[in-house]
Amino acid sequence: MKDFMNELRKEQVLKIIKEKGATKENLLTILLTIQEASGRNYVHREWAKWVAEELGLPLSKVYDVLTFYAMFSTKPRGKYVLEICHSAPCHVAKSAAVVQMFTEELGIKMGETTADNLFTLQYTSCVGACDIGPVVKIGEKVYGNLTRDKVAQIIQTYREGASCLN
């Protein structure tokens, strides 16, 4: 249990719960907000436990939610999660090639996180941008009609953004 919570303190988690409203129907938005606030795009067991306590839920029910919905992770991910759509329209638009571009550019495989904890590559189901496939989704942003140049540029932009923040 020593590995946890460098990212979020209990007060922060409780504050999020309070802001969103400590009722059961707010569980998803609470967990999504915690995940975002973590900076590592995940929900640690301890944070989930505090949520469970505040909402009066067994931890096993919170865990069910965390493992059911695709947007959650219980393991730390990169600061930016690059989600490449591999549903049919993007598949037809050659998303496989885009996967190759990203894996080459970042030097990691799908599902992995870069050593600097900046990027995680993963697949996603359709994000509703089929007219500009193949697409990658990063946070709230969707980038379409991807080419090798665009991919390199996107990664560059996020790298620079991150270094500015630091």
Partner: peptide, 10 residues
């Protein structure tokens, strides 16, 4: 709206 190929509700 999650049906792949559907993006009108958006």
């Amino acid at each position: 709206e999650g049906e792949p190929g559907t993006f009108k509700d958006k």
